[in-house]
Every structure is written in C-alpha cells, then in structure tokens.
C-alpha cells in the first residue's frame, strides 16, 4: 500500500511475563505487588503495635515482664504443644517480611528502569537541573532507606534480645528485664534504638497513609482523616518505643530495686521451673 517508514518508537521497558495461575498472577504486576505490600504492611504494623504494647510490661517490673514473655509461649497449649503457636506466628512474620521486602525491591527496580537517571537509594534524581517536590514529604521519599535501615536494625534487635549473641550485652536467657536494661544502658545502643525507631515511625506514617491508596479503600470523604490516622498510629508507636531507651538511660528503669528473679541466671530459672 505504501512505502513503510521506519522511525524509532519507545519500546516497553519490561516484557509482560507469562501469566501464572491465580493468585500468583496478582503478584506479577506492580498494582498487585503494592496490594501485597499494603496487606503485609498491615500485618507488620499490627505486630509492631502489639510488640510495643506488650513491652510496656517492662514498667510493671521484672517478674511481670517475664510472665508476659512466658505467656506468649503458652498460647494454644490446650491443642498444640507449647511454643508451637509462637513459632507459627514467627513464621508468619518472616513470610510477611520476606514478601514486603521482595515486593519493595522489585517495585523499586521497576521504577529505576523507568527512570533514565535514578539511583536505587534516593530514586529521585531524575532531572539534571534538580526537581522541586511539592507534595511528597521526607517520609515518603525515604521509604526505601528507612525500610532498609529498620530491617538491619531488626536483625540487630534479634541478635541483641532474642538470640543474645552480642558480646557487649550481658544476656541472660529467660530474664528479659535484665537483658533490656543491660542492653539499653549502653548509650550508643540506646541512641541506635532511638534513631531506628524514629525511622520506623516515619516508615509507618507514610505506609499507613499510603496503604489505603494501594488497597483502593479510600474515600474522598475521609482523605483528611487518613493523614491524622497515620500520624496518630506512628506517634503512638514512636512514643511507646522511644520510652524504653530513654527511661533506661534516664535511670528510671534499672535493676537497683529489683527482687528475684531479677538477675537470676537461665540455669536457675530452668531449675526453678523443673522444681515446681
């Protein structure tokens, strides 16, 4: 019919993958991944909130804190062996973390591809002449950075108070009160906890605001309230979590007045339990 004309046309930057069966197909697209991120975000947010509230037992004293910790292990003992529920819960958390991180990583990779000159960490360098942001706040722009740092912090936190493998902490298995105090008495450690929790709160602030959008459950009527809601949740978690290192550093939480089992060793606790 006519001479054909050759002219470059923007090619897709990613080819559509072979469609997998449901529900995996959902996870193949960015919108689906954002949905997964929002759902796992809600789960993780719930955990962080519960974790913070549970930790408030610290202020009741060593015995009560230890009892709380033991209670977690006892959940579900009527039907399944002890600690199975806790392990199931932990596996669920790990899965959520894994999905959350994988989705974040692949989405970021997609955006980097869509940007001629972006770097993985800030992701915002698009313009040679710089860009002047209007809507997005610091929390929104630093989700990848805050998420990464919080993730690394969690590893430290586990090593510190769950596995007890850090040489500079006098870890006593079964005595969470002692472990917390001896860890946070170190001011660099307290500072690390403070910084990490501020980043966590920022991450939660943008995440909580954003998840309504990703799930598509927002309504123009409540848009104003969404930001307040996200801010409140982030603030509650921030205040709760910051209180631990600050009060320990301030000397308001310490082992001076404690009674047994404060300072008892893991072996002694086991012996005690065995003796009952």
């Amino acid at each position: 019919m006519a001479t054909t004309m050759s002219r470059p046309k923007p090619e897709p930057i990613s080819k559509p993958p072979r469609q997998l069966p449901f529900p995996l197909s959902l996870y193949q697209t960015a919108v689906g991944k954002k949905w997964v991120m929002a759902l796992t975000g809600i789960g993780l947010l719930g955990f962080v909130l519960a974790h913070m509230i549970g930790n408030l037992h610290l202020y009741e004293g060593p015995v009560e804190l230890r009892e709380y910790a033991e209670t977690l292990r006892d959940i579900g003992t009527e039907v399944i062996p002890r600690t199975w529920f806790l392990w199931g819960f932990r596996l669920g958390l790990i899965a959520m973390f894994a999905l959350h991180i994988h989705a974040a990583y692949t989405l970021k990779a997609m955006s980097v591809k869509a940007n001629p000159s972006s770097s993985v960490l800030d992701g915002t360098k698009k313009y040679e002449g710089g860009q002047d942001f209007i809507a997005v706040n610091f929390a929104g722009r630093t989700m990848v950075a805050s998420g990464t740092i919080v993730g690394l912090f969690i590893v430290y936190h586990l090593a510190d108070l769950t596995w007890g493998v850090l040489p500079w902490v006098d870890y006593e298995r079964g005595d969470p009160y002692h472990n917390v105090v001896s860890s946070l008495e170190n001011w660099p450690v307290a500072l690390l906890y403070i910084v990490a929790n501020i980043l966590l709160a920022m991450h939660i602030f943008h995440g909580t605001w954003s998840l309504f959008q990703s799930l598509g459950i927002n309504n123009p009527r409540y848009n104003g309230a969404r930001r307040a809601f996200a801010g409140s949740i982030a603030a509650v978690i921030l205040i709760g979590n910051l209180s631990f290192p600050i009060l320990v550093q301030a000397g308001l939480v310490d082992e001076d007045n404690c009674t047994a089992p404060c300072g008892i060793t893991g072996e002694e606790v086991e012996a005690e339990e065995a003796g009952q």
């Binding site: 960015a30 919108v31 997609m110 848009n223």
Partner: peptide, 29 residues
C-alpha cells in the same frame, strides 16, 4: 506497567496536573 514505574503514592502527579486530577482515581483503579 510495561512502560512506566510503580506508584509510591507520593502525590506529585496531582500537584503537577494542569487539571488537578485527584489521587483518588488511582485508588479506585
């Protein structure tokens, strides 16, 4: 998604939009 990046709900788009199309449409989608 074959051509563009992923939305992180920043809202810069609405601010730049000459017609101020609200972010809510992204949520509905």
């Amino acid at each position: 998604e074959q051509f563009f990046g992923s939305c992180t709900n920043h809202g810069e788009c609405t601010e730049a939009c000459p017609k101020e199309i609200p972010l809510d449409f992204i949520a509905y989608t």
